[in-house]
């Protein structure tokens, strides 16, 4: 298994929205490399013809009726908001699509 590079860790941090300092990147790169080296053993079974288990219980079709339940009040909904305005969550400027 290939090891994980510092650049890859930086990429992961970006994907995961973690603003890491350089020394943190170095620190994590070493640790993640160790961990991945250890857990990579699972790929021993990669070519085995075994169905994957995503759910521990074989349940299917758990659904609810389309009936309205009480919502939170807007005060409750916004009670933890770091900032609010006009009964809406106030967030910094959003980059991205225009």
């Amino acid at each position: 298994m290939p090891g994980i590079t510092r650049e890859e860790v930086a990429h992961l941090a970006r994907l995961a929205r973690l603003e890491l300092r350089d020394e943190e990147l170095d620190h994590f790169a070493g640790q993640l490399d160790d961990i991945i080296g250890a857990v990579a053993r699972v790929s021993e079974v990669a070519d085995q013809d075994v169905p994957p288990t995503s759910h521990p219980l074989p349940l299917t079709n758990v659904m609810r009726a389309d009936e309205v339940r009480p919502s939170l009040t807007p005060e409750q909904a916004l009670s933890g908001a770091p900032a609010q305005e006009q009964q809406r969550f106030k967030v910094p400027q959003i980059l991205g699509e225009d």
Binding site: V91, P92, Q93, I94, D98
Partner: peptide, 9 residues
Amino acid sequence: IHGASHSLL
């Protein structure tokens, strides 16, 4: 979105 100072959700 362009030039906005903040957004409301």
